[in-house]
């Protein structure tokens, strides 16, 4: 293992990187008129951290990223929705990773899908209209697809620089 100082530096770099990914994502237009359909770029970072520094570090970095980028590029609502999505996605990814039934691809796809489920659940509570659930099917399918791409990129990163923790 490594020193506390090195760990802090790595995690700070991760937060900065996550904020950049959030910014890039905020610049992208809405896809196909369905709100909430997005590539989930910062999930690459979360999956990478989950498989290298462990779930505690990944959770800390992700929550810090969401709050900071929410203040910078979003609004209080986007923070609530992002947190709801991120936490439900995160809980599922930790569980699935622990059971090691899936590879990083399966974990990342399940994370993408659950991100959208969490967001729609919060939206239904806030707007008090169950019809919003009709946005769920396209979001689930896009979440699964982008989750696969996130898994592909994360696996590539893990193969190349996954040993960063032990250097």
């Amino acid at each position: 293992m490594q020193s506390r100082g090195r760990m802090t530096a790595y995690l700070a770099i991760s937060v900065a990187l996550g904020m950049m990914l959030s910014y890039v994502e905020a610049l992208l237009p809405v896809f196909f008129g369905v709100p909430g359909m997005k590539p989930g770029l910062s999930n690459i970072l979360v999956v990478f951290l989950l498989y290298t520094f462990g779930w505690k570090a990944a959770l800390d970095v992700n929550i810090t990223r969401i709050i900071l980028s929410g203040i910078l590029f979003g609004n209080p609502f986007s923070i609530i929705y992002s947190l709801a999505g991120a936490l439900s996605s995160f809980a599922v990814m930790i569980l699935l990773k622990r059971f090691s039934f899936f590879s990083v691809y399966g974990v990342s796809m399940a994370g993408g899908v659950c991100h959208n489920i969490g967001q729609i659940a919060v939206a239904m509570l806030l707007v008090e209209n169950y019809r919003i659930i009709l946005y769920l099917p396209p979001l689930l399918i896009s979440g699964c697809f982008t989750g696969f791409l996130v898994g592909l990129i994360s696996a590539g990163l893990l193969i190349r620089i996954g040993n960063i923790v032990y250097d």
Binding site: Y51, S100, F101, F102, S103, V104, Y105, G106, M109, A110, V113, L140, I141, G143, C144, G147, F148, A155, L158, I159, G162
Partner: peptide, 15 residues
């Protein structure tokens, strides 16, 4: 864990 497994296909199917 870094290679696509057969079991991974369960996720898109369930989705």
């Amino acid at each position: 864990v870094l290679k696509l497994k057969k079991s991974d296909s369960a996720v898109p199917l369930l989705t």
